[in-house]
């Protein structure tokens, strides 16, 4: 359709397509602007915490949610939204090709991006030994020695995944103890291929055309040089909150969009859900729930209801 949509949803991950599904159920005219369909869940090999489904790949889960949303026939534009502005009656969103769309409410499901270490060699050796997607690129390290940099639950899961190819996986973590869910921590401690190097930072990726070694800030077995064939950086993610910033929506110190328990932001008619929001537990199931709340509250807002 053309004209003004009831709701525009920005983002095509679990949260974005969940919101599109629910807005469809609520009979809202819905526009979904998607830079990349699937979102962060695509990086997860096995999703085992989606209620009702014991195990499913991230790819299949994302596809299922997208197909479910499409049953309600939202308009979907594959484009990067680069600008968001308040208008008299709602919002305007402009994509990277300069095309502008209008809506009465806005749901931000813009997700997050991989965080970088920002150390020497990281950009030069990207995909030449330095990676951020174990699921995609782990296959190149069959019987090799690799390092996972980070100590979060995601880092632990990456390390576990990589053991199916690698001969040895070092987890290099700046803290004392890795911060994984207990079930994953048990798995990593029981895995003989994984060794944790704690209280250590990586200062540099070094190599001539391909990664040859890490430079550590303290010696490991007598040397600051740590020879590896590959390294996977998993130190968390940064929220994609630029559009929220443009709208003057309140962000927290991490740059995440602050929402209340109704997925409302500080700006009337603007909602947020998924990894861009200031939720403490970033999981697909949480993002989907927030998306449903955002959709329902957008619906109530359009009905003129006040809380």
């Amino acid at each position: 359709m053309s004209g003004t949509y009831d709701v525009a949803i920005i983002g095509g991950g679990v949260a974005g397509f969940s919101a599109a599904m629910y807005c469809g159920r609520l009979k809202l005219s819905t526009l979904l602007i998607v830079e990349s369909r699937g979102g962060t869940i695509l990086l997860t090999n096995h999703v085992t915490n989606w209620p009702g489904i014991k195990a499913i790949s991230g790819m299949d889960l994302a596809t299922n949610i997208e197909e479910h949303a499409k049953e309600y026939k939202p308009d979907i534009v594959d484009a990067k939204a680069v600008k968001a502005e308040k208008t008299k009656d709602g919002f305007s969103i402009t994509d990277a090709d300069g095309k502008t769309y209008l809506s009465r409410t806005l749901i931000l499901a813009t997700g997050s991006a991989t965080r970088k270490l920002n150390i020497p060699g990281e950009n030069e050796l990207e995909n030449k030994g330095v990676h951020s997607c174990a699921l995609c690129d782990g296959v190149f390290y069959r019987d090799k020695t690799i390092a996972v940099i980070g100590g979060s639950d995601s880092a632990v899961k990456e390390a576990l995944l990589l053991t199916q190819w690698a001969m040895k996986v070092y987890m290099i973590y700046r803290g004392e103890k890795v911060r994984a869910e207990p079930i994953n921590l048990e798995r990593v401690l029981a895995n003989e291929k994984i060794e944790i190097v704690n209280n250590t930072n990586v200062k540099e990726f070094a190599g001539n055309g391909k990664l040859e070694k890490l430079i550590l800030d303290k010696p490991y077995k007598g040397s600051n040089e740590f020879k590896v064939d590959g390294a996977f950086v998993e130190i968390g993610r940064t929220p994609n909150s630029e559009l929220a910033r443009q709208l003057g929506v309140k962000l927290n110190e991490k740059g995440e969009v602050m929402i209340n328990r109704h997925a409302e932001t500080s700006a009337p008619g603007v909602y947020a859900c998924g990894d861009v929001a200031d939720t403490i537990f970033k999981q697909a199931i949480v993002g989907a729930g927030e998306a449903v709340l955002a959709s329902y509250c957008a619906y109530e807002y359009l009905q003129g209801k006040k809380r």
Partner: peptide, 10 residues
């Protein structure tokens, strides 16, 4: 591509 690579499937 590889069987388990999501972006490859895309």
């Amino acid at each position: 591509s590889a069987e388990w690579c999501p972006w490859c499937h895309k």
